[in-house]
Nucleic acid binder design. Structure first.
Lengths: 233, 233
DNA sequence: TTCGTTTCTTGACTTACGTCAAGGATATCT
DNA sequence: AGATATCCTTGACGTAAGTCAAGAAACGAA
């Protein structure tokens, strides 16, 4: 166990939240952080439960989501390595505002809320980094509200595919990194609707689906769809 | 003009963002802030334009909103006295993510971005106050995404009315503080739909509308509607 | 591989809500 | 107060997307 310590320090140093932290603070953190693991599908926290701290994801992915009365799920965001989970609640001392489930085998460091508050007082850079983090999340949520309220599902899907293409596209092929059902939940719809729209887009020659790989055949029209063109879907 | 200065200082002292600021910093701010006025309906900034600073609203109200390709409007939030407008963009140095229009005659202090960044460096309490602000906004947006994606319009309306009742209700009467058209835009729908749902709720004996005053006659059922009950609407 | 489970797709149907158009009610300005 | 513009309501209609149900395909475990 002891020989793992150097690894943890390096991990911490490369976590955006802890950028610019002095060595001493990192070492202190290393002594406080608790490593936790979660199985695929395991619940990490539940909406409404009291926040006793937050997580820094080391490996794996976690979905943060809301549930409707009828059980429909809306994914708010997916948290991956080096990102924070539940930090706002820990800072504000409020209950977790949504559920969090591991989407795959996940390991994370847990930082108890009280230690976090002490750290914040001592290290202003942590607060600045966290502000940057919150700002990005706010932007993301703004776009999500816009999409849900002002775009239809084809527009949201096209926007997501083009976004994937920009970040991870190899040629004109993008690989959806989550199941189609989960993608539906991220886009604010249901698997049936997503499936139908993908088929229509295929029929129109806009793309070609094979499993999780999607070849974007007409990005121009996909862009138009994002901007509200009906394109006969 | 000079005899107004004491007023400004008092205003600043009572602004959440500047809580706990030393007298000296407040006086410096007072020398930097620029007072600006906007007419009803006037645009304050536009989505995509570069942020050169942010506003502290002194009087009046401002709607922050997105527009769809077809011109439909989604209000993200309404900013009133002592609240901040455009602060995230000023902090992050990103363009404004939405439009802002004055809903009534509004006066505000403008703080140039560069001065804000200097202030942030010098006064950690400002950052903490701003974090608290961002956290609340994030919570608000989370709820908004949940509502748009998982609730229908009657549920969103009922939630809004009950929220108004909690904050400002006199007996069982609440007063909607914006026009019905704007309320529709805030709830992510259109005036026709809002009108129809209000009528149906009246017919079911859940409430009684007279102008902007709404008498809530059956809060229990309204709560049920928030929680996904159809209630025969 | 084979079995069993989960995920994905498809069709027929329903429905909430948006669109279009018009009349009525309120508000605002001189 | 009267005139003009804005806001609100109502009806008839269209449509995007959800529900229900059933097969097909993909995945995982034994």
């Amino acid at each position: 166990m002891n020989e793992k310590k150097p690894d943890r320090l390096t991990l911490l140093k490369n976590t955006p939240l802890f950028l610019k932290l002095p060595e001493s603070a990192l070492r202190m953190l290393d002594g406080i952080l608790i490593e936790r693991s979660f199985l695929k599908g395991e619940n990490i926290f539940t909406e409404g439960s009291e926040s006793d701290g937050f997580y820094i994801i080391i490996k794996g992915r976690v979905k943060v989501f809301k549930l409707s009365a009828e059980g429909k799920e809306q994914i708010l965001h997916i948290v991956g390595a080096k990102e924070l989970l539940g930090a706002v609640s820990a800072f504000a001392g409020t209950p977790y505002p949504a559920h969090a489930d591991a989407m795959e085998k996940t390991t994370a460091f847990f930082l108890p809320g009280k230690d976090f508050l002490v750290l914040i007082q001592k290290e202003p850079s942590v607060v600045m980094n966290m502000m940057a983090n919150l700002s990005m999340r706010l932007q993301h949520f703004t776009r999500m509200i816009e999409d849900l309220s002002l775009k239809e599902v084809p527009g949201r899907l096209a926007a997501y595919l083009l976004y994937l293409h920009e970040r991870t596209g190899r040629g004109d092929v993008v690989e959806i990194d989550i199941s189609k059902g989960q993608l539906a939940s991220l886009l604010g719809t249901i698997p049936e609707t997503l499936s139908r729209i993908l088929r229509k887009m295929s029929e129109k020659g806009l793309l070609k689906v094979s499993g999780r790989k999607v070849r974007l055949l007409n990005r121009k029209v996909l862009h138009d769809i994002v901007n509200g063109e009906k394109a006969g879907l």
